[in-house]
Computed example of a mutant assay.
Amino acid sequence: MTSDYSRIEKAIEFIHAHKLKQPLLSEVAAHVHLSEHHFQRMFSRWAGISPKRYLQFLTLEHAKVQLEANVSVVESAFAAGLSGSSRLHDLFISMEGVTPGDFKTDGEGLFIRYGFHETHFGFSFVATTDRGVCKVDFINNNDKECSAAVSQLQKLWKNAELIHDQSATLGVADALFSAQQDALTLVVKGTNFQIQVWKALLSIPPGAVTTYQAIANAIGKPKAVRAVASAIGANPVAHLIPCHRVIRGSGELGGYRWGLPRKAAMLACESS
């Protein structure tokens, strides 16, 4: 699975870099050292759409169509009290900030179980507590990055006890990209402003996109676009808090903490 994603990621990078030239299937296949037939089958199996359709998705015109159709999703969701606007938010994902006591003690008495898992979009680091999921990162599968992920988690929760437990986090990893997810609760540590932004992200339905400005409007701080972007970049739970669904007002995909090809791939898969 991870090796397939690695090849697909290289293909996505190539397609994204050359999208204005509309590269042929043969050119993309050659870039990842596969035959056209093998590449077409691998890409379609992985993404659920053909390389040609994926290229169409990446064009600026397509992004603008999505933007025009969905820019008001977050504002509408807030106006309706976040009710009925998002299947993902209503049925699968709920989120709570840590208590003031947890924040003050840096997780003293808290047990956090973590594990490393292969997923549809690459190797991941997952951490969970008895109250819910507190961390999901995409990392490279090597000792250095695995060790760094654990160190960063310990830095965030200085007094918590970290336990390597693959079985405890396997269910979360399996649910990340499952169409039939069990209900998941997220427990996150952030400022009040960050948590406001992360909650707003949960109201964006799968396959839709919105903008940084729309998120700022939705939380009642229309002039805080840069702060919103910063809060989105600090998202501690990849994919489940869907920061990949926020793009620039111009229609460009913008940046993504876990790699622009991964962001583009997630949006394409959700759209398909």
Rank of each mutant, 00 (worst) to 15 (best):
T99Q: 01
R248D: 10
L91I: 02
G97V: 02
V172F: 03
S147M: 13
S83N: 10
L34M: 15
R53F: 03
L67W: 00
S44G: 12
H89S: 09
Q56A: 07
H117K: 08
W258Y: 14
L170T: 11
V65T: 15
Q66Y: 02
G109M: 03
L184C: 11
I232P: 05
S250D: 09
S44A: 15
A265H: 08
N142C: 03
L24G: 05
S147C: 12
G190R: 00
L91M: 09
A77G: 05
Y212N: 04
I163W: 03
T169V: 10
G249I: 10
T169S: 13
S26D: 12
K155D: 05
V98G: 08
V209F: 03
R248Q: 14
F138R: 10
E145H: 07
S167M: 11
H62S: 15
P205A: 10
F92D: 01
A173V: 09
A11W: 04
Q180A: 15
A149V: 06
Q22V: 14
I8S: 03
E27S: 12
E118L: 01
Q166W: 02
I219E: 02
A227P: 00
N142K: 08
H120S: 09
A80Q: 11
G107S: 07
S230P: 02
G101S: 15
F116C: 07
A17V: 06
L162E: 06
L267K: 10
E27D: 06
I204Y: 04
R257I: 09
T129K: 07
F123E: 02
V237A: 05
A229H: 01
N142W: 01
G84I: 12
D106I: 00
E61V: 12
Y256E: 05
L170K: 15
A265C: 05
L260I: 13
I204T: 08
N142D: 13
R45S: 11
V32I: 07
V74W: 01
S85E: 06
Q22I: 12
Y54K: 05
I163M: 01
T105M: 04
G207I: 04
V32K: 08
W157G: 03
R226V: 12
A264H: 04
K223E: 14
L184Y: 00
K10T: 11
H37E: 14
S230D: 08
K199G: 03
K158V: 00
G97E: 03
E68L: 15
K19P: 03
G84A: 13
E36F: 00
S124G: 09
V73A: 11
N192G: 15
Y54Q: 04
E36I: 09
V28N: 08
L184M: 14
L260A: 11
A264R: 10
F111V: 15
Q213L: 10
K221R: 14
K21N: 13
G109W: 00
A200M: 09
H38K: 15
M1I: 12
L55N: 13
A227Y: 01
N140P: 05
Q166I: 01
L240V: 09
G255F: 04
G171D: 15
